[in-house]
Design a protein around this nucleic acid. Structure first.
Lengths: 254, 254
DNA sequence: AATACACCTTTACGCAACGTCAAGGTCAAC
DNA sequence: GTTGACCTTGACGTTGCGTAAAGGTGTATT
């Protein structure tokens, strides 16, 4: 397949000026140029552009990118794995930021106090590095460096004590839920307490909590027999009740 | 607490030049200036700078930020919620990109084929907007604009047909799992097929798939009675088998 | 009282990664 | 042969600072 500037540009979601600029700085030359001076890109250029955009997304400068992809010892395979790792780190940073925003919202609602120092957490990448320092090494030794990431660390660090906690929590959820069912009001205090406990329980297993995922799970509890039957074991309609409580808790329903 | 440029800069993790620049463009003026011309920042400025950095992290231009925070009708609460939404969208995009990288890795290993168009998925922000255009309005009408987000849309758009698909898929998972159990090898073809189907099934409920979350769920199946009992209903040890297959599938175990 | 030294100031040019005209050539179709 | 959607090469503008340059300030120590 052959592409003109515009064609390739719209395919990749960049401007034609960008492609001309990349040509200008020698980052991405067209496969050939017609007698009238038109730039024509081929398959190899498509793949190369993809690589470039990957690196650009990571915040690398174009000069650095050029060095990387023109390196004769450049290993595309390895670069991609490296890539993926960095993206995961970036997502982790984003999660920190989201947590920070949520904390700030809570703060502005007057629920919690924040020190000046806390207010800037999540902006500094340091936090991730520190985490790595704390957990990374020992696990790396055990399992090899490739399989290590923060989520992993979270699970492997789950001690016997935490296991007991999570079991107790699961019991508490069921108990609160039974009580709440009597009120028949998922928006009520007990219903919301059950939803909150359920969230707490979830965070033992998920490394990123999001309201969306929580709400999605709640719906799954009703939609899917395998979950529904568990919750409805005690009393019919419990799965629906829990779903409604969580949907209200997460703000997807009032 | 009062801060000089340097003090505030190092507190917030920016340069003093940045603070001077923000002063210059009228984005963040110091609380007062000493007789010798030193800039002195107070509590209000600390909070304001935090706001500015939040918006900056989103990629908003300083002019836009200025408009937002100097707007007399500026509602911090609402802005923060808006904020959070954008961050979640950004994370969604990141997830797309990560999926893309993984696909590319698979592609370069010769496992799958990728079209040129697929190669650039996740780079374009447009996709989100288009999604909004397609699904946003009708749902917004039904539920009010605040509760709308993509995950929501995803669920609500689940048609009868999709519901049948997901049910069929669940059945397939169980069936494949039963077959796979006979081989007693979670790393084998059938075991991996079951894990793959399980992933496919999951994506109907989760709006962001990640290997970490998938692996976490797998562990949950074994750790928690309510899930374990469902899977072990047919044959004892099925939950463990599925967990192992998924852990291998997601690369957390070989 | 002088000196050192870490802070602060303004002014000003530099940079990346394009956006945005301007002025003009090309290509396929009608 | 002319219309209109493409392409070309300049060249200057923009954003968000970095980075000197040249000089004033605050305070501790000699």
């Amino acid at each position: 397949m052959e592409y003109t500037v515009q064609k390739l540009a719209s395919l990749a979601g960049v401007s034609s000026r960008t492609l001309r600029y990349y040509d200008e700085i020698g980052l991405l030359k067209p496969a050939r140029v017609t007698s009238s001076g038109y730039r024509i890109y081929g398959q190899a250029e498509v793949d190369c552009l993809q690589q470039i955009l990957f690196y650009r997304e990571l915040g690398l400068g174009l000069e650095d990118i050029k060095e990387i992809i023109t390196d004769p010892a450049f290993n595309a395979q390895k670069a991609l794995t490296e890539h993926r790792k960095k993206l995961l780190e970036k997502r982790e940073q984003l999660n920190q930021l989201i947590a920070n925003v949520e904390k700030t919202i809570a703060h502005s609602e007057g629920r919690t106090e924040m020190s000046d120092k806390e207010k800037f957490e999540g902006f500094k990448k340091k936090t991730i590095d520190e985490n790595e320092k704390n957990f990374g090494e020992e696990i790396r030794e055990k399992y090899g460096s490739d399989t290590v990431d923060l989520s992993n660390a979270k699970f492997l660090k789950m001690t016997q004590k935490q296991y007991e906690e999570v079991t107790a929590l699961a019991e508490q959820v069921t108990k609160t839920l039974t009580e709440a069912m009597k009120t028949a009001d998922p928006a009520g205090e007990l219903g919301q307490k059950a939803a909150g406990l359920h969230k707490k329980w979830l965070t033992y297993y998920w490394n990123e909590y999001s309201k969306e995922a929580h709400a999605g799970l709640a719906r799954m509890y009703v939609e899917d027999e395998r979950f529904k039957s568990y919750y409805d074991k005690g009393q019919l309609g419990t799965a629906e009740f829990l779903r409604d409580a969580i949907l209200i808790y997460t703000g997807f329903k009032q």
